[in-house]
Design a protein around this nucleic acid. Structure first.
Length: 327
DNA sequence: TAATCCGTCTAGAATCCAGT
DNA sequence: ACTGGATTCTAGACGGATTA
């Protein structure tokens, strides 16, 4: 395949981007929706986070790509020591062969990568290199971590959703209106004020979790589902609907509810932050839906009162939930 | 066949600088 | 003093020759 020249010289970084999206699309396709991807909103370093829906597990991922084999037919992956910041993050390294990923993909956590890689000090900087051949029965130290391209999702623990589950999440895309979008933007703005949080958005945009935050220190994740509830002078009470079939409670998932004052076109001063595990006992079931009753404009939120906090402190509150345990 | 070493190139950051 | 463009600098990405 002589498409190399297309990428060569000046296109190499673009090739890296291409590789990232090849990896994401392979994971989404192979898992038939069982894996979702979150892309970073500001920080570089981690290229994306893979979310396994079955158990809510999050895996930070760094994608490394090469466009050419060495003359000896090897794939060489070099990274700087400084770019390996999270031992639990996974390195996904691959050849970009024309418009496809290579037939074999290296998937290894950063700690193992650091341990197995060739360490090389050049001009005061440390480089780590993995060298391997793209075949299944190699005997290199990397062989145990090589997986065929078509079994990438499997490596991430997803066997795919059952047929009746496929498409379920697609339904909810239409749930979100203009107000909902405003709410998400507001939550992102508030979380961005917390300096220790890294933020991610889902790709494609059909997750229950709409904003994902990771603490830079503890590396812990917290996913937020954002609900925005409007009110005006005439209707003080309101309800928030959560589709039961696509609601996946997990310890790391929270539901945030913002109030939108239609009269003033602004957000209420307070919001709610509810652990998703507690939602089923707080909500009333109405057929396909779980319903939370609240008074977004009021000072009191009835049985949800204990989850109320000032909107300005939302970033701090999320930060506290994921920060490292104090010694 | 794998590991090591190193040269070249680029994007983005930092800095400089001329024109207003 | 300010602005936007040009220039320089540097970390990191990439490729491949050489060694083990």
């Amino acid at each position: 395949m002589q498409t190399d020249a297309v990428w060569h010289r000046g296109q190499t970084l673009a090739a890296g981007q291409v590789a990232e999206f090849k990896v994401w699309s392979e994971l989404i396709r192979q898992s038939t929706g069982g894996l979702h991807i979150f892309l970073p909103l500001r920080d570089r370093g981690i290229d994306g986070v893979v979310h396994r829906l079955q158990d809510g597990f999050y895996a930070p991922v760094q994608v490394k790509a090469r466009t050419e084999l060495t003359p000896a037919g090897q794939v060489h992956i070099t990274v700087t020591e400084s770019s390996l910041a999270d031992d639990s993050a996974l390195v996904v390294a691959t050849l970009v062969d024309g418009d496809r990923l290579g037939s074999m993909v290296l998937v290894v956590d950063e700690a193992t990568f650091r341990r197995l890689a060739a360490h090389d000090l050049v001009a005061g900087r440390e480089y780590l290199t993995a060298a391997f051949e793209m075949r299944t029965n190699g005997r290199s130290r990397w062989a145990p971590y090589l997986v065929p391209r078509d079994r990438l999702a499997e490596r991430f623990g997803s066997t795919g959703l059952k047929a009746d589950e496929v498409g379920r999440d697609l339904e909810r895309v239409s749930d979100r209106g203009v107000i909902g979008f405003l709410g998400e933007a507001e939550v992102i703005r508030r979380l961005a004020e917390a300096e220790s949080l890294r933020l991610f958005r889902p790709f494609p945009d059909l997750e229950t979790v709409e904003v994902l935050a990771q603490h830079a220190g503890s590396k812990r994740f917290l996913g937020l589902q954002v609900k925005t509830s409007g009110w005006d002078a005439t209707t003080v009470e309101n309800r928030v609907h959560l589709r039961r079939s696509s609601f996946r409670p997990a310890p790391s998932t929270y539901v945030s509810v913002l109030g939108w004052d239609r009269d003033r076109s602004s957000f209420a001063d307070s919001c709610l932050l509810i652990p998703s595990l507690e939602v089923p006992e707080l909500a009333r079931v109405e057929g396909e839906w779980m319903v939370l009753e609240l008074e977004p404009g009021a000072e009191h939120h009835r049985r949800l009162e204990q989850y109320r906090l000032p909107l300005v402190s939302l970033g701090r509150a999320v930060e506290r939930l994921v920060q490292p345990p104090s010694p």
